[in-house]
C-alpha cells in the first residue's frame, strides 16, 4: 500500500520534472500518468501493491474535486457576466461531441461486441 502510493508520487514527480525541463504546457500528473501507463504496458501486469492504493484513490476521486470547485465562489462575477455564453457553449458542444463520437465508432460496433465477449473479466472504473 505504502510502496504503491510512493510509486504514484514518484511518477507524478517525474512528470512534473519533465514538464519543467521541457517546458511542455501539459500538467505534470498527466505526464506521470502516461509514464506509468507505458511502464505497466512494458511490465505486462499491475502488481497488487500498486493496484490497491490506486483503486482506493480513484474510488473517492469525486471528493478530490471539491476543494478546487469551491473556488467558484471567487468567480461569481464572471459567471454572472458570461452565463449565457457558457450555457450555450456547454449544451451545443456536448451534443455535437456525442453525435461525432457515436457516428465514428458505430461502424465498428459489431467488432467491439465480439471482442468483449471473447475475453473474460469485468471492467470497473
Amino acid at each position: 500500500m505504502l510502496i504503491g502510493f510512493l510509486i504514484l508520487l514518484l511518477f507524478q514527480f517525474a512528470g512534473e520534472l519533465i514538464v519543467v525541463v521541457s517546458g511542455l504546457p501539459v500538467p505534470g500528473p498527466v505526464v506521470g500518468m502516461v509514464l506509468l501507463l507505458a511502464g505497466l504496458i512494458a511490465k505486462g501486469d499491475v502488481p497488487d501493491y500498486l493496484r490497491i492504493p490506486s483503486e482506493a484513490l480513484l474510488k473517492h476521486l469525486a471528493l478530490l474535486f471539491v476543494p478546487a470547485g469551491v473556488g467558484l465562489m471567487t468567480h461569481l462575477g464572471l459567471l454572472q457576466q458570461d452565463w449565457l455564453a457558457i450555457l450555450a457553449a456547454l449544451i451545443i458542444s456536448t451534443a455535437l461531441t456525442i453525435v461525432v463520437t457515436a457516428l465514428i465508432l458505430n461502424p465498428s460496433a459489431r467488432k467491439l461486441q465480439a471482442l468483449s465477449q471473447s475475453e473474460p473479466g469485468e471492467g470497473d472504473c
Binding site: P29, G32, L40, R51, S54, E55, L57, L58, L61
Partner: peptide, 20 residues
C-alpha cells in the same frame, strides 16, 4: 491527492487497454 489520483488513472486505463 488529485496529483497522485491522476497518475493512478493509468491503472484502469491499462486494464481496459489490454482488452481492446
Amino acid at each position: 491527492l488529485l496529483g497522485p489520483a491522476t497518475v493512478a488513472l493509468a491503472v484502469p486505463l491499462f486494464d481496459h487497454f489490454e482488452r481492446v
